[in-house]
């Protein structure tokens, strides 16, 4: 496997707050890589720096071996990086079809081609029944799918998904997982931020853990889930020891 994306010692400071603190990660081409961590860890902030919506205070972002740290967002999209927004950002006044077409226009200059591409993507993520609806009228699940569809329509090589499963009920999550797997099997690399652990375990080849801006662990999902530091980051100091004790007492 070759490396598609690298973040090297990326730091983002908001005034006195270190939102991302010297974080590094690599995403292998063709993989689904997870980025997890408690609320406020800096996951979305790291995404905004990878997608070009904010410049890091220090550090570099490399895509396909090139330094893209200073490139604006729309150029990165053209180079093959697409993102979804954790807080969905539909073009509320446009139809679902037109929403997706905006993404499709990136690689298809003509209207017919773009609209056809949009329709194909809608079918892939299961939005084809709602093409003519105004985007503002979609349910939460629908909006999450629309975020995904628009990003996919840009035909990215790297797809950045920021909590696309949040707010979905278990059966909706179950429906989405094969969709994401199918996208990956088409050769699209995915970096996914997710709180739904069951999905992370099922989808990801590698997982990175961010806590208070720092990358505290990485590895296969199974290993990371049992890492003492990770458990403490999620559940508070001493939690790992307590769990251990609990386990031992039971066995």
């Amino acid at each position: 496997m070759s490396t598609l994306l690298t973040c090297e010692n990326v730091t983002k400071r908001f005034g006195g707050l270190l939102a991302v603190d010297n974080a590094s990660l690599t995403v292998e081409a063709g993989s689904i890589t997870g980025l997890i961590g408690p609320n406020g860890a800096g996951k979305t902030t790291l995404f905004t720096m990878i997608s070009g919506f904010a410049e890091p205070t220090s550090g570099r972002v490399m895509f396909e071996g090139r330094d893209i740290t200073a490139l604006p967002a729309h150029i990165r999209a053209a180079q093959g990086i697409a993102r979804t927004f954790q807080i969905v950002q539909p073009f509320a006044g446009l139809s679902v079809h037109e929403n997706i077409a905006v993404g499709a226009y990136l690689r298809h200059a003509g209207r017919t081609e773009a609209m056809d591409k949009a329709e194909a993507v809608a079918r892939e993520v299961g939005l084809d029944a709602m093409l003519a609806q105004p985007a503002g009228a979609l349910t939460v699940a629908g909006r999450k799918r629309l975020e995904l569809a628009r990003a996919l329509a840009t035909e990215p090589r790297l797809l950045l998904l920021d909590e696309v499963l949040a707010g979905l009920n278990p059966s909706e999550i179950r429906d989405m997982i094969p969709v994401l797997q199918a996208i990956r099997s088409r050769g699209v690399t995915i970096l996914i931020v997710e709180h739904v652990m069951q999905a992370v375990m099922q989808l990801c080849d590698t997982v990175y853990v961010l806590a208070q801006g720092r990358m505290i662990a990485s590895g296969a999902p199974g290993e990371v889930a049992h890492d003492q530091g990770v458990v403490e980051a999620y559940l508070g100091h001493g939690a790992a020891r307590k769990m251990q004790a609990h386990h031992e007492a039971k066995s």
Binding site: F53, A73, A77, F85, Q89, E98, V102, L106, A151
Partner: peptide, 17 residues
């Protein structure tokens, strides 16, 4: 299409290239 996308949501439009 780009023009109306910018009208509706500039951030989202930029993310789509």
């Amino acid at each position: 299409a780009h023009l109306v996308a910018v009208r509706e949501n500039e951030e989202a439009a930029r993310a789509l290239g």
